[in-house]
Amino acid sequence: MNPVQLVESPIELSQWEKSLQDVDSGAHAWFAGVTRRKTKASDGQIRITATLHYEAHPTMAVKELQQLADQAKDKFGLLKVVIVHRLGEVPLGQASVLVGCCSAHRKDAFLALPWIMDRLKEDVPIWKRETYEDQQTEWIHP
């Protein structure tokens, strides 16, 4: 299973756990980004999301994610990295992204997860569209 993927079906952690198996690893760390119901708007009002939709520049997104995984391995001495992002409709409470990594010791795996996520949110060409409970839609371009 390619450890860097865009998928259109639910992301199940159990399907990916074996991807980090390595006898030299002493730490597996996982992060799942999950679609959330409440969003605070810039005017302070809380908006209620009904559902979310993700789209990507698919070839470029995979290339960027692969570069990110390679850079994280070099920077933190990781043994393996998994990055899976879901596209299409993602109902509330489900994972839109899953990042996993393993290292010899826990510190590197712990440090790598936020580093990977921060860069994913800066550079990987994936976008989400909120559909609010009043059926208004909005592309998020922060």
């Binding site: 520049h57 992204v97 990987v124 976008w127 998020i140």
Partner: peptide, 10 residues
Amino acid sequence: FAVIPPVSGG
């Protein structure tokens, strides 16, 4: 060529 607006994955 592709125009890449601010991204919002994750």
